[in-house]
Computed example of a mutant assay.
Amino acid sequence: MTLVARIRALPADLDDLAGAAAAEGFGMLGVLAREWVAGTQRFAMPEEALFAARDGAGVLLGIGGVTRDPWAPALRMRRFYVRPPARGRGIGRALVAAALDHARGAGAAMVRLRAPAAAARFWEGCGFRPIDDPTATHGLEWPGRG
């Protein structure tokens, strides 16, 4: 069983997850921790939220959130990562769904992201479409919003 919940503080065990990400060449969780400590990004604005996924034993399996997009009038998916042994079990999709539900509730007309090439297929499977923009690789729009 996996539980996805909104969090308002960085998990105490984020370093372990960040180490797994770094071992794969992904630095986004190190950036998350540095920005949090510096106070430059804490997912604290009303339309922003950070989510964590844990298994039944409380092990942190993944993390991700949504923030204001600094380059467009949209929200932005940020800092998504699921540890390798937990992949393929719907955890990433559950994190994305939680973030998108939050974004919809906040009235967002569009959500964008910048994905590494290896993650493009995942994001497209979540409904995002490639976009031609130097600041984002994918976007998702809700008709009638904005």
Rank of each mutant, 00 (worst) to 15 (best):
G144E: 01
I63C: 08
R79S: 14
F128G: 00
T135Q: 14
F122Y: 05
E141M: 14
A5T: 13
E124F: 02
Y81F: 15
E24F: 00
F128N: 00
A52P: 05
A22T: 12
G58S: 02
D15L: 08
L32C: 11
A33R: 13
A109Y: 05
P116F: 04
V96G: 00
A94P: 08
G139T: 03
E124R: 15
R89P: 00
V31L: 10
L100R: 12
M45Q: 15
E48D: 07
L75C: 01
G56P: 10
L113M: 14
L75V: 01
R79T: 10
R76T: 04
G56E: 15
M45R: 15
H102D: 02
R42E: 13
L100D: 01
A18Q: 08
Y81G: 00
G90K: 10
G58L: 09
G105H: 03
D16I: 09
G88R: 11
M110D: 02
A38F: 10
G27N: 09
V66Y: 06
A94V: 09
H102V: 02
A117I: 14
A98K: 08
E35M: 06
A33V: 00
E48W: 01
L10F: 07
R129N: 04
P73S: 12
G30C: 06
D13V: 02
G39I: 12
G105N: 04
L32Q: 11
M110V: 13
A38R: 15
